[in-house]
Each structure stands twice: as C-alpha cells, then as structure tokens.
C-alpha cells in the first residue's frame, strides 16, 4: 500500500500549471469564475490534456474562498466533460472544451450584421440603444434559462 502511495506523483513533484484569481466586482458566481478560468487557460494553451488542477486545499489557501465553491467548480468541469477526478490523486484535464467552429461563428456573425443589426438601424436606433437592447435581451434569455432550471428543481420538492 505504502509503495503504491509513494509511487503516485505528488503535488510537489508536478505543481499545477495554473493558479486562480477572483474578480469580486464582476457579479459572476465564484465557482463559475473558476470554471471559466480553466476553460480560458485551455483555449489559450496554458493548460493541456493530462494537466492537474490545483488541490482544493491549495486553492482555498491561496484565494481564501469556501472549499465547497472549489468542489462545485471542479464538479461542474467534470460534468462538462473537461476534467476527471481520481480519488486521492487529483483532478486532471481529459479533453479541451468544445469550441464553436469558425463556420458557425461566421454564420452567426453575418446573420447579426445583415439581419438584426440592419433592421435596428433601419428603425433609427443608435449604437447606445442597440447595446442597451442587446443587454436587456441577453439578460432576459439568461433569466428564462435560469427560471426553467430552478423550476425543474423545485418540481422535485413538491
């Protein structure tokens, strides 16, 4: 048993390539900030498949947050299929996050430019009004998505 344990790589041998930071003013939930930082690090190539995420204990010691928040972030990453936890060893990157294809991106963009944005200008909206409208629509769509989520949860209680 002891030999097995000794042969496992330890955090000291291979420190995780990333450390987390927090933006308390952003309004983005803390666990989601951690998730987004892992995804961003993957997109930028700072993290690769096989890399280990920092231990929960090390994260809470460095940025003073609740350990359950870190666990929640790691669970979310696992649900998204990005990481895999190996009990007693650590949490490892298994796949890069799905990125939107260039083709889909270009198509959405051109639909926005030649469609909705042209219509908006057509009725006389200025840039500020367009941004305000977009933000309000974005928050409504997030809110609808959230309320659908919370409703299905509360169904379980009833």
């Amino acid at each position: 048993m002891d030999i097995d344990k000794d042969s496992l790589p330890t955090q000291q041998d291979h420190p995780s390539p990333i450390s987390f930071g927090l933006d308390l003013r952003s309004g983005v939930p803390t666990y989601l900030q951690l998730v987004q930082q892992v995804e961003a690090a993957l997109r930028l190539g700072h993290l690769q498949v096989g890399d280990r995420l920092p231990k929960v204990k090390d994260v809470v010691s460095s940025i003073a947050i609740n350990p359950n928040t870190v666990l929640k972030a790691y669970r979310e990453l696992e649900i998204r299929g990005i990481t895999s936890g190996r009990p007693g060893v650590g949490t490892f990157i298994v796949v890069a996050p799905p990125t939107i294809s260039t083709k889909a991106f270009d198509q959405l963009r051109s639909e926005l430019v030649t469609g909705w944005l042209r219509d908006a200008r057509g009725v006389g909206l200025e840039d500020d009004a367009i941004v305000a409208l977009f933000h309000s629509a974005l928050s409504e769509s997030m809110y609808l998505a959230n309320s659908e989520g919370s409703r299905s949860e509360s169904d379980g209680d009833a």
Binding site: V56, K57, V60, S61, S62, I63, A64, I65, N66, P67, V70
Partner: peptide, 14 residues
C-alpha cells in the same frame, strides 16, 4: 484578513 481567512478555509477543507 486575507491570510486569516485563507488559513481558516484551509482547515475547513482539511
């Protein structure tokens, strides 16, 4: 304050 809380959270995690 930050160090104090970090140590506290470390203990909670442990």
């Amino acid at each position: 304050r930050q160090e104090f809380l970090a140590h506290l959270m470390n203990q909670v995690a442990t």
